[in-house]
Design a protein around this nucleic acid. Sequence first.
RNA 1: GCGAAAGUAGCUCAAUUGGUAGAGCUCCAGCCUUCCAAGCUGGAGGUUGCGGGUUCGAGACCCGUCUUUCGCUCCA
Length: 503
Amino acid sequence: MNQDNLFKNIVSHCKEYGFIFPSSEIYDGLNAVYDYGQLGVILKNNIKARWWKSMVQLHENIVGIDSAIFMHPKIWEASGHVGAFNDPLIDNKDSKKRYRADVLIEDYIAKIENKITAEVDKAKNKFENFDEALFLSTNAKIRELVQNKETVFNRFKLALDSNDLAALNSIIEDAAIVCPISGTRNWTEVRQFNLMFNTSMGSVSDEANVLYLRPETAQGIFVNFLNVQKTSRQKIPFGIAQIGKAFRNEIVARQFIFRMREFEQMEMQFFIKPGTELTWFEHWKKERLNWHQSLGLGNEKYRYHNHTKLAHYANAACDIEFQFPFGFKEIEGIHSRTDFDLKQHAQYSGKKIQYFDPETQESYTPYVVETSVGLDRLFLSILSAAYKEETLENKETRTILSLPFALAPYAVAILPLVKKEGLPEKAKSIFNELKQNYMVAYDEKDTIGKRYRRQDAIGTPFCIAIDFQTLEDNTVTIRNRDTMLQDRILINSIEDYIKQLIK
RNA sequence: GCGAAAGUAGCUCAAUUGGUAGAGCUCCAGCCUUCCAAGCUGGAGGUUGCGGGUUCGAGACCCGUCUUUCGCUCCA
């Protein structure tokens, strides 16, 4: 089976068994938005719990928060998102290159200016006692250029001030601006690309303030730095962790849940002393890779990808990539964000955001090393590594999700061998006992073999069969999903048995 | 966003040059069944993605639109 088909099968498996559904499907779906179904939500919650435990519970110097999705609009000016995420863009259909429409027009104006300057210089050399003002107003060619420039400039300014995309469009058309690469004028419409979603707060529309849905969870941590540091009495180095939704109006969202417009992040911002950032950067790179590898999906499926082109806030950056069916792609980013964010917020808010070091008696703005996991991507990585179509010894095939035991939606399935003679009653009493501590499935329909396969397909690690011997000696068989081998154990030792294997 | 392909039941797919929308699996109710998906009976489930057009007649042809997939592009 090739990788494309494998990926397709994973996607339809997700829908068929209730892991992931296309959003709003009865209304034809909504582009690149997906809903987690009855099994998907459990798997996702299990992933979150595992991350939270490893980051927060097991680190005395990391605490968690859950900040609001709505934040003060100034935050996004401080972080640089407003500046970077709002551009009028236009495509050339021939070269298939995308340009910022405003830059295109600015370049055009600059070009005319260069022409004028060149003409002026030429005239300067030609005439003695050169009067530039007189020259500009009398030379017909120059006058035309100047006029042209002014017309374009005024229209451009007007268009920008009124945010009029159609006007930008007609400037490009009227000025006959061509694509620097293809040299053609085969343009698309100018479109405003707002990579941040916005909404408004306040029910009276003309008094409402525009708000953005956060494009990353990190800023919620930075703006709470002082609150958390003071109330938790943490000393540097310490971290703040958060799991939450973020929203980006991606131009192209593709590849199932890999790139969605609404997605979930699991982030930890680690605050440290300036100068120690590269040490901590290396530390968290290793820690996080180990965490991923501890899932047991295969160490060879992970690799680092060091960034050579760094974002404005970073002085080192590295991705942990996972081998998806469609290639190695980022699932987690580790970034050394310097003191950029805290300093920006100090400047924009006018508040002092610093840490007082009790040992050195000095105040400083902490540096930050960030670990940021794409939860949906992690979900997809686990699912795509777990999905297998096996051929058994008897030539039959089974579809199996070899999920890490601890993450599987159901830990156990309870299956009475037949649907009569007291077996269902016995099975249900075991079911009711186990469900106090585990997610347990119960199924008495169809043959036992068929039920095993159903549980294999959703990744249930253990199947407990209640047979006639159970009624005699209180033992059951417990079957391992991966090996399909069974042990016969006492009912009252089931929990110990499971506990030992689910870690 | 550009280019290409596709969309029929929950899933996989049929439906002769335009002529009554079907099958298998799944699902549900039973029967049968003593451990690895295939037995028996009955049942549910579709304005053929949506909207228009051509035609006596459209799942099929034309236009638009939505969604999906692939390639490009984009991804501070």
